[in-house]
């Protein structure tokens, strides 16, 4: 009995001590900085000066760089993760907001909000490699798990465009609700989820038939529908739970991926935008634009367990693999 108790404590200590510190890079849209959070201490360990209006942010596949789209500088900056300083740029085309990479990490697909275009960039050559014309104000970008279909959402056209990355053309477009912001595939690729900020819904699309098979709606007790504006979508790697950031509603909805039912609403900071899991899947970090902080959600407990102050208007988060 006692032994078991002591062993239990020892094990807990061991596990606690093992919690490897990941690094989260948070793009602060207004302060033109990236805050580097250590996920062990939950503290900002460095603030990196970047270009103007940093929003979309992600690691390169080789983990050597964190790429950050600096919309007002019409460029994507490369933060060297060994020095945590900006060491290069990619020619993103005008007003880059969001991007995704090809599965092999060679190409970057960038939504150019001002230009109705998705620009393709060869990362190694640091050069543009083509472009695809899409709808008005392209924003959300997602690659299917098999790498065969690239999704772009266009905010004023209200569509999810299916792009063949080999042919580099739009092969299908699916109408969704107003101002589609973000697209995410379920890990098995069987569903495509698209959030509509102004429409207030998440459309679940069958990527084979290319039709909306269901729309997920949200309702928070005591809150009017207007501020419930879904943006970021993060689905757990086991494909069981989806977390949906509800913008100015200051909540993250937890949705059962199988049933498409909302099972919980978690109160986070103000104007919650994009999010990222720690690689072990234990925590989900949310960028809260208006309260200038990052909420830390314990994924197993479905509870907010910490808050980290960052720069002004945090927009998105990139998380290291290790």
């Amino acid at each position: 009995m006692w032994l078991r108790f002591i062993l239990g404590i020892a094990l807990a200590l061991l596990l606690g001590g093992q919690a490897s510190a990941y690094r989260a890079y948070v793009a602060n849209e207004r302060s033109n900085t990236v805050s580097l959070i250590d996920t062990d201490s939950w503290k900002v360990v460095k603030t990196i000066e970047v270009g103007q209006r940093p929003r979309g942010i992600a690691y390169t596949k080789d983990q050597k760089y964190v790429l950050v789209a600096c919309g007002d500088d019409d460029t994507i900056q490369m933060i060297d993760t060994s020095t945590n300083t900006v060491s290069g740029t990619l020619p993103s085309g005008p007003d880059p907001e969001f991007f995704t990479a090809s599965p092999d990490g060679k190409f970057l697909y960038v939504a150019n909000e001002n230009d109705n275009t998705v620009t393709i960039i060869d990362i190694a050559r640091r050069a543009q490699n083509g472009a695809v014309q899409v709808g008005v104000e392209p924003e959300g970008m997602a690659m299917s798990p098999d790498g065969k279909i690239l999704i772009n959402t266009s905010e004023t056209t209200n569509m999810a465009h299916f792009i063949d990355p080999a042919k580099r053309e739009v092969v299908a477009s699916v109408l969704v609700d107003q101002r589609p912001r973000f697209a995410a595939f379920t890990p098995d690729g069987s569903e495509l989820w698209v959030s509509s900020e102004v429409g207030g819904t998440v459309s679940v699309i069958d990527p084979v038939k290319r039709v909306v098979k269901q729309k997920i709606e949200f309702a928070i007790a005591g809150m009017r529908p207007d501020p419930i504006q879904p943006v970021g979508i993060n689905i757990t790697s086991d494909g069981k739970l989806a977390f949906i950031a509800l913008g100015p509603a200051n909540h993250v909805a937890v949705v059962d991926v199988k049933t498409h039912k909302v099972i919980k609403y978690l109160l986070v900071g103000e104007r919650v935008w994009h999010m990222a899991f720690t690689p072990d899947g234990k925590y989900l970090l949310t960028a809260n634009g208006v309260s200038n902080d990052v909420s830390v959600i314990d994924v197993a407990a479905l509870k907010v367990v910490n808050t980290v102050q960052v720069g002004e208007l945090p927009w998105g988060i990139a998380m290291s693999d290790h």
């Binding site: 109705n116 709808g135 008005v136 056209t157 209200n158 569509m159 739009v170």
Partner: peptide
């Protein structure tokens, strides 16, 4: 123009 950009997909 905006309608046409959308319309070309429909």
């Amino acid at each position: 123009d905006d309608n046409d950009t959308t319309g070309k997909f429909l």
